[in-house]
Amino acid sequence: MFRKKSKLTFHQKKTIFTPKLFREIFSWISVTVLSIVLAFVFVFAFGMQVKVIGDSMEPSAYNGQTVLVNKLIFKIFGPSNGDIVVFLPNGNTNSHFYVKRVVAVPGDKVQIIDGSLYINGTIQDKDDEEYDKMEDAGIAANEIKLKSGEYFVLGDNRNSSEDSRSANIGIVKTSMMVGKVWYKMGIGDHKGGIVLN
């Protein structure tokens, strides 16, 4: 009896470089490059973490709480009234980052009268029980007119805050700001979450 010869071979068929294969390779390369670009943008925009120092932003943020800073959107749109921003006072890189709320924007007139905040002659926190009357008006005892690129910031816990009222901080310029707080990490019993202002 004759045995059939085995058709097993150890030589693989050569791959033919077809347009379909080319499109598939190009697709994988494109997805990889896009992923790298998106990762870079995400890290640039949201990669900065800042730790809150002190109780000046309570109850919005607590001492030791970590916040994530959005630098990209901030550079495109700039700060708005009510935003919680991160800045270096007078651009001093040796200082720690300050976290405060924008209460007045360029063109506004700011003054603190009898412990209350006035913007453009209108009282802001008349019926707002969240804010106590400010014991110290600081430099805002006299009316301040904000120029282009200038912002007035306050801590939410106003009687325990070093902010734009203090002569050593004063008006905060856009060039001093790093970005806007967009997310607060939880700390202890205090809940974190997205900042919606």
Score class of each variant (00 low, 15 high):
53 I>P: 11
123 I>F: 12
178 V>I: 13
185 M>D: 05
144 I>W: 06
59 P>I: 00
96 H>P: 10
100 K>R: 06
149 G>R: 07
52 V>Q: 01
191 K>Y: 03
122 T>R: 11
4 K>Q: 15
113 I>N: 13
96 H>I: 15
18 T>G: 14
72 L>Q: 01
174 T>M: 14
52 V>P: 02
136 D>Q: 11
19 P>S: 08
144 I>T: 09
179 G>Y: 00
109 K>G: 10
156 D>V: 06
60 S>K: 09
163 D>M: 03
93 T>E: 13
52 V>C: 02
1 M>Q: 11
7 K>Q: 11
24 E>Y: 03
130 E>A: 13
32 T>F: 05
152 F>E: 00
84 I>W: 01
159 N>V: 01
148 S>H: 09
14 K>T: 06
123 I>N: 15
51 K>S: 12
76 I>C: 04
30 S>T: 14
7 K>L: 13
161 S>K: 12
73 I>D: 12
109 K>I: 11
110 V>P: 08
63 N>T: 05
50 V>E: 02
44 F>I: 09
34 L>S: 15
41 V>I: 06
18 T>S: 11
161 S>D: 14
180 K>H: 01
26 F>M: 12
190 H>N: 02
88 L>T: 00
50 V>L: 01
175 S>Y: 14
28 W>K: 09
85 V>C: 01
63 N>K: 06
48 M>C: 12
145 K>D: 07
117 L>Y: 04
54 G>D: 01
141 A>W: 13
38 L>I: 07
115 G>L: 00
140 A>H: 07
141 A>Q: 14
163 D>H: 02
168 N>W: 00
64 G>H: 01
117 L>F: 04
170 G>R: 04
103 V>R: 08
60 S>Y: 03
54 G>E: 00
164 S>V: 14
14 K>A: 11
12 Q>M: 15
51 K>D: 12
120 N>R: 13
104 A>T: 03
107 G>S: 13
83 D>Q: 03
109 K>V: 12
45 A>G: 05
21 L>Y: 06
19 P>D: 10
39 A>G: 11
16 I>P: 15
18 T>W: 14
60 S>P: 04
165 R>C: 02
154 L>E: 05
73 I>C: 14
149 G>H: 15
140 A>Y: 04
67 V>I: 02
39 A>K: 11
152 F>W: 00
35 S>Q: 09
21 L>S: 08
42 F>T: 06
10 F>E: 11
82 G>N: 10
156 D>R: 02
148 S>R: 12
132 D>E: 13
10 F>C: 11
41 V>W: 02
150 E>D: 04
158 R>C: 10
181 V>G: 01
3 R>S: 14
164 S>D: 09
62 Y>F: 03
9 T>C: 07
134 M>P: 04
